[in-house]
């Protein structure tokens, strides 16, 4: 190993690269296949340079050339950490087309490798929360029951009891959690994107975050034993179904029962 050493930072690059690559979904796994041939080739500085290039192209218009932010338009990205970058770009919220009250989840514009590069660049500017490892978001051994208790105390008020999302003030919305990956949920808690408060690792420990994630994931995967879910948003759709489905069906039945008998051929 030592004979192949090319750069003093290479071991760190392996570690960082490995963390990044395992954290960003199956696309990253494919990339890891290539990387396994020459894991050390992506040096951190090269990655940061690539990230910087992407940043200037995709992000700097709003966030400023040095990621210092533009007042009233876009926040400073110094110190937000790799987790924030990964969350924003992997959920497609960034790069945003235009500033708005709420950026919706979209298919990501950057590929996992580009995301990793930008994340590395932003991290190099001032640290901040890192992307969670796959072990940190693994649900093995997690306690969804405890997660439920935490979820209703600190999450459900915005995201609804099963993560369907909800309305906030001035056109902002707490997004539904139906598509969020465990990594993204973890990152959101850690970094508090947009209007969301921060739940750092000392207020909600990584273990508790896993419990919450386990609750969210199990809830959304759980089939609806009582039939169609009606959106799982509670009594509003139930009321609509009661009127437009049940009452209307009964009205049709009543109309049939009392309909005029067909004309008797008479006289």
């Amino acid at each position: 190993m030592s004979s192949r050493r090319r750069h003093p930072l290479a071991p760190y690059a392996v570690v960082v690269g490995g963390l990044l690559l395992t954290g960003i979904g199956y696309a990253a796994v494919t990339a890891a296949g290539d990387a396994s041939a020459s894991p050390a080739r992506i040096t951190q500085s090269a990655q940061i340079a690539q990230g910087h290039a992407i940043f200037l192209e995709e992000c700097a218009t709003c966030h400023g050339q040095f990621a210092q932010g533009t007042p009233g338009v876009a926040p400073s990205l110094i110190g937000v950490g790799a987790a924030a970058v990964d969350f924003q770009t992997s959920t497609g919220r960034m790069p945003a087309k235009e500033p708005s009250a709420e950026n919706d989840r979209k298919p990501p514009e950057l590929n996992p490798q580009e995301i990793a590069a930008v994340a590395a660049y932003i991290e190099s500017l001032g640290g901040g929360p890192t992307i969670p490892t796959s072990a940190q978001v693994s649900q093995r051994g997690a306690n969804p029951g405890f997660g439920q208790q935490l979820f209703v105390a600190d999450c459900a008020q915005c995201h609804n009891f099963d993560g369907a999302g909800g309305a906030l003030t001035y056109g902002k919305f707490a997004p539904p959690l139906t598509k969020s990956t465990p990594t993204q949920i973890f990152e959101a808690m850690l970094t508090g994107p947009e209007a969301m408060p921060v739940f750092n690792n000392t207020t909600i420990t990584p273990q508790e975050k896993r419990d919450i994630i386990a609750y969210i994931v199990q809830t959304r995967q759980e089939p609806n034993p009582g039939g169609f879910s009606l959106g799982r948003i509670g009594p509003v759709t139930e009321g609509l179904v009661a009127f437009l489905g049940l009452l209307l069906a009964m009205v049709f039945a009543a109309m049939w029962i009392t309909a005029k008998h067909r004309k008797i051929p008479n006289e």
Binding site: A153, Q157, P225, F228, G234, P235, V236, V241, A242, F243
Partner: peptide, 27 residues
Amino acid sequence: TFAQINPVWLYGPYNPLAISAGSQPDF
């Protein structure tokens, strides 16, 4: 059979310091 109503298992047990977004009464 086909339309789930009041899935209390999703709401969770009552807790006076917890609340869900979109809390609604029956129609």
